[in-house]
Amino acid sequence: MDAQWFLIFADILLIAHTLLVAFVILGLVAIYLGHILNWQWVRNIWFRLAHLIIIGVVVLQSWLGVICPLTTWEMALRDKAGQAGYDGSFIQHWLQSILYYSAPEWVFVVAYTVFGALVLASWYLVRPKSPGR
């Protein structure tokens, strides 16, 4: 396979990964804002389950010291294309790239855990509706 295809697939993974991160962050903002503005869609059980599961996986990975498989896969594709990958997790890499900020791994574990706790709290503060309700 041509190296260009590996880069295209790596970029597709990067975009998908970025969209997942945006879904988690903006989803939580939408849940709390939706509660204030009475948006009923933020109570959709499928939206809320997807949101909870994704952040739950992120928190679990951080506790176990596991790098996200999307990051690993993207780096492997970039390596096959002859392009340098990056060290650490997706979030650490992009935070460092965007904000020029580097922190010890425990800072990210705490941040993910606190964010996960906010998502879990949203289940009690902004209760999702079951499909039959």
Score class of each variant (00 low, 15 high):
Ala117Pro: 02
Val57Tyr: 02
Leu7Pro: 03
Tyr100Arg: 15
Trp73Asn: 06
Gln40Pro: 03
Ala30Ser: 15
Ala10Gly: 04
Met1Ser: 06
Thr113Leu: 03
Leu28Ser: 13
Ala3Asp: 06
Ala10Asn: 00
Val109Met: 12
Gln83Val: 13
Asn44Ser: 09
Leu77Asn: 01
Ala3Ser: 13
Gln92Met: 15
Phe6Cys: 12
Val59Gln: 04
Tyr86Gln: 12
Val29Leu: 14
Ile31Glu: 01
Val119Thr: 03
Ile54Val: 13
Met1Gly: 08
Arg48Gln: 11
Ile67Asp: 07
Ser130Tyr: 06
Gln96Leu: 08
Ile67Phe: 09
Lys129Val: 14
Arg127Asn: 05
Phe108Trp: 06
Pro128Tyr: 06
Thr113Tyr: 02
Tyr124Thr: 12
Trp63Ala: 07
Tyr112Ser: 09
Ala111Thr: 04
Val21His: 01
Thr71Gly: 02
Leu33Thr: 14
Ile55His: 03
Ile45Pro: 00
Phe9Val: 07
Gly88Thr: 04
Ala117Arg: 00
Lys129His: 15
Gln92Ser: 15
Ile54Leu: 12
Ser122His: 07
Tyr124Trp: 14
Phe47Tyr: 12
Ala81Pro: 01
Gln92Tyr: 07
Gln4Cys: 05
Leu7Tyr: 07
Ala84Val: 08
Gly88Ala: 14
Val24Gly: 09
Leu20Ala: 14
Ile36Met: 12
Gly85Ile: 06
Leu13Asp: 01
Ala30Met: 14
Asp2Val: 05
Ile15Gly: 05
Ile91Leu: 10
Phe9Thr: 08
Leu99Phe: 03
Ala76Leu: 13
Tyr32Asn: 11
Phe115Met: 05
Val126Thr: 11
Val119Asp: 02
Trp41Leu: 05
Val42Thr: 11
Val110Trp: 03
Ser62Thr: 05
Gln40Asn: 12
Trp39Ser: 08
Gln96Phe: 06
Pro128Val: 10
Ile15Phe: 15
Gly56Ser: 09
Phe108Val: 01
Leu118Gln: 04
Leu26Tyr: 05
Pro104Thr: 06
Tyr32Ser: 11
Ala103Met: 15
Ile25Trp: 00
Gln92Pro: 02
Gly65Glu: 10
Val119Pro: 01
Ala111Tyr: 04
Leu52Thr: 04
Trp41Ile: 09
Val66Cys: 04
Ala3Lys: 12
Ala121Ser: 11
Phe115Ile: 02
Gln61Asn: 11
Leu77Tyr: 03
Val66Ile: 15
Ile91Phe: 02
Val110Met: 10
Ala117Trp: 02
Ser130Gly: 12
Phe108Tyr: 15
Gly27Trp: 00
Gln4Met: 09
Val59Cys: 06
Asn38Ile: 13
Ala84His: 05
His17Arg: 04
Ile31Cys: 08
Met75Gly: 05
Lys129Phe: 15
Ala50Cys: 08
Ser130His: 11
Asp79Pro: 00
Tyr124Gln: 12
Ala22Met: 09
Ala16Lys: 00
Ser62Trp: 00
Ser102Arg: 12
Phe9Ile: 06
Leu64Phe: 09
Asn38Arg: 15
Asn38Leu: 12
Ser62Asn: 07
Arg78Met: 10
Ala111Ile: 04
Ala22Cys: 13
His51Arg: 09
Ala50Glu: 07
Val66Ser: 08
Val110Asn: 10
Phe23Ser: 08
